[in-house]
Design a protein around this nucleic acid. Structure first.
Length: 578
RNA sequence: CGGGACGUAGCGCAGCCUGGUAGCGCGCUUGACUGGGGGUCAAGAGGUCGCAGGUUCAAAUCCUGUCGUCCCGACCA
């Protein structure tokens, strides 16, 4: 490619609408432009990078035995009714009616394709002999995000690779899942993206039925915890902590319990400000209704209750926050003043609760709190549970290490679906003994556009982007410093042509602009390898070669520069592709 | 859906409070010079001030409504 013939509208200044680095830099580098909130055009160099990621995904999917196909983005709403996902998706589903002759057709833009593939397989799979089978596609997905944000990280229209496995047994499912998991690791490695596979919500099957692949990034929307010691990593909702039940005894410096007036202050934040005591000194008392019975759940004031853990600790199936009426019945006070002292229902507490001496709690009286509340004396506990979200610095559940909370961007998800869709869409097969079973499914997604954004988000410096060679829009740029100097341009043209012939993805910056201008653009876009041909070097018979990451260029003789660069590119590719 | 901010040239912004001539930087066009880190000089082009209504002799400016975009939160199979 010749830069003079390319369409790379770089920006010197940062558009004010862009907040996060990936958005700012991709905009500035001329890779994307916004059409409206949550919808972006990929300009030529942005699309080149996107397609390179796509190709890596494709190669690894094929290698893992998945078969590529292509399903419609428009889907009949009826399929979503059958699986109950019209309601589950709610407003996220983009659906509409169109008129065809004399009748209306109600359809949706696919937010994903479980319904479509399962329907397809329902019609074509009859026998266990046709299984197992994994298919995939790379296609645009549509979701009406309530709040699109962070540029290309969260959009209403995005490119996704979605794969679906169909098996006759749990063994089939596990094999497909493991193959996908391994392929994902290779994909992200080849893309040069740092990633952490984490245990995620397990869904209907339980166990290790779901993993998310997270790219650690400060602006990531998800929080995960990870142990530096053993590598345990999990989604915040799912993460266990290594905390144990402490000794439950009244503190030796327990103060007298006192009731204080806290008019109209029902939240921890308000009371904390009023009493000038930190939230860590508070016991948060949440009233839930568990399988029809009210239960008080105690967590420390600065912690978040985890409903999944509470449900498991209680061994119940239904759990929801109690209504104001129930709360009044149990506490004798309006919402906001509940506490464990004298409460009229079962109480369960998080491990951290007995450790709070002289705690502040609601008084179970309107507009009043208690201070100096101590376990054993003022309220009783037999044992404690892990009832809250994991937090930074919690002990690891698997080893002696410590958990660290990190933000991450979800770039992939593998999920053991089971028979949820095959049951509702009647996708069944006959086994060896003519028994009919629902096909056992798995689904596996990669946000292709998100991988690109995550790379931009994590690989940049003050000068611009810094792409891994496998994803960069061009691997190498050849920059003649003076377009009017015939010797310089001739030398650059020669290098450019020979690199092309050597199979290197190269762009020639043949624009008639000053050197500094070229350097800035090249660094902003983040082309990994730069070859500079200038009058100065030419006199000595050398060109300058510099990696985007290097501080200083190295001089390479003109007659070997092509061979050397081709070699460097080859090695860089290999270090990622393996 | 709750809270907040912003819409003025392609981009970044000033002007608005206190109504009267639409301005700056970058970018763009032409020419000359220049040629190793977004260069200099000169001459230019480019605007329904988001949109609609209202107040006024007069509205970018004041009032009302509306649309759009961004941020925080809720939500995210």
């Amino acid at each position: 490619m010749r830069w003079s013939k390319a369409f790379i509208p770089t920006l010197k200044e940062t558009p004010s609408d862009a907040e996060v680095p990936s958005h700012q830099l991709m905009l500035r580098a001329g890779m994307i432009r916004q059409l409206m909130a949550g919808a972006y055009t990929y300009l030529p160099i942005g699309y080149r990078s996107l397609r390179k990621i796509e190709q890596i995904v494709r190669e690894e999917m094929d290698k893992a035995g998945a078969l590529e196909m292509f399903m419609p983005a428009i889907q009949p709403i009826e399929l979503f009714h059958r699986t109950g996902r019209k309601e589950a998706f709610g407003n996220v589903l983009i659906d509409f009616e169109i008129t065809r002759r004399d009748h209306k057709v109600h359809m949706a833009l696919g937010p994903t394709h479980e319904e479509v593939v399962t329907d397809l397989m329902a019609k074509h799979i009859n026998s266990y002999r046709q299984l197992p089978l994994t298919v995939y596609q790379i296609q645009t997905k549509f979701r009406n995000e309530e709040r699109p944000r962070f540029g290309v990280l969260r959009t209403s229209e995005f490119l996704m690779k979605d794969a679906y496995s169909f098996g006759a047994s749990v063994e089939d499912l596990n094999a497909a899942y493991d193959a996908m998991y391994a392929a994902y690791c290779r994909i992200f490695t080849r893309c040069g993206l740092e990633y952490i596979p984490v245990e995620a919500e397990s869904g209907p099957i339980g166990g290790d039925a779901s993993h998310e692949f997270m790219a650690p990034a400060g602006n990531g929307e998800d929080t995960i915890v990870r142990c530096g010691g053993c590598g345990y990593a999990a989604n915040l909702e799912r993460a266990e902590t290594g905390r144990k039940t402490p000794s439950i005894a009244t503190s030796s410096d327990a103060a007298a319990m006192e009731q204080v007036s806290t008019p109209n202050a029902g939240s921890i934040e308000q009371v904390s400000k009023m009493l000038k005591l930190p939230a860590t000194q508070f016991i948060k008392t949440l009233i839930y209704v568990a399988d029809g019975t009210p239960v008080a759940v105690l967590v420390r004031g600065d912690h978040e209750a985890n409903e999944g853990k509470i449900r498991r600790a209680l061994g119940v199936t239904s759990l929801e926050l109690a209504s104001p009426q129930v709360i009044e019945e149990v506490t004798g006070a309006p919402v906001g003043f509940a506490g464990p002292v004298g409460i009229k229902c079962r109480v369960i507490a998080d491990h951290d609760i007995p450790l709070i001496s002289n705690a502040v709690t609601g008084a179970n009286v309107a507009d009043a709190h208690l201070t100096g509340v101590n376990v054993g004396r003022d309220y009783q506990l037999d044992t404690t549970f892990d009832l809250r979200d994991a937090a930074d610095a919690d002990p690891c559940p698997r080893c002696e290490g410590t958990l660290n909370a990190v933000h991450g961007i979800e770039v992939g998800h593998v999920f053991k679906l089971g028979t949820k869709y095959s049951e509702s869409l009647d996708a069944r097969f006959l086994d060896e003994s003519e028994q009919r079973h629902a096909i056992i499914m798995g689904c596996y997604g990669i946000g292709v556009t998100r991988v690109l954004a995550a790379l931009a988000e994590t690989r940049h410096d003050e000068n611009g982007l810094n792409w891994p060679i496998t994803v960069a829009p061009y691997e190498v740029v050849v920059a003649p410093l003076n377009a009017k100097d015939e010797e310089v341009t001739a030398a650059a043209e020669k290098i450019y042509a020979e690199l092309q012939a050597a199979g290197v993805d190269v762009i020639l910056d043949d624009r008639d602009v000053r050197p500094g201008f070229k350097f800035k653009d090249i660094e902003l876009i983040g082309i990994p390898l730069r070859i500079v041909v200038g009058g100065r070097g030419l006199k000595e018979g050398v060109a300058e070669v510099k990696w985007r990451n290097d501080a200083e260029p190295q001089n390479v003789p003109l007659d070997t520069v092509v061979a050397q660069v081709a070699n460097m590119v080859q090695e860089a590719r290999q270090s990622l592709n393996g």
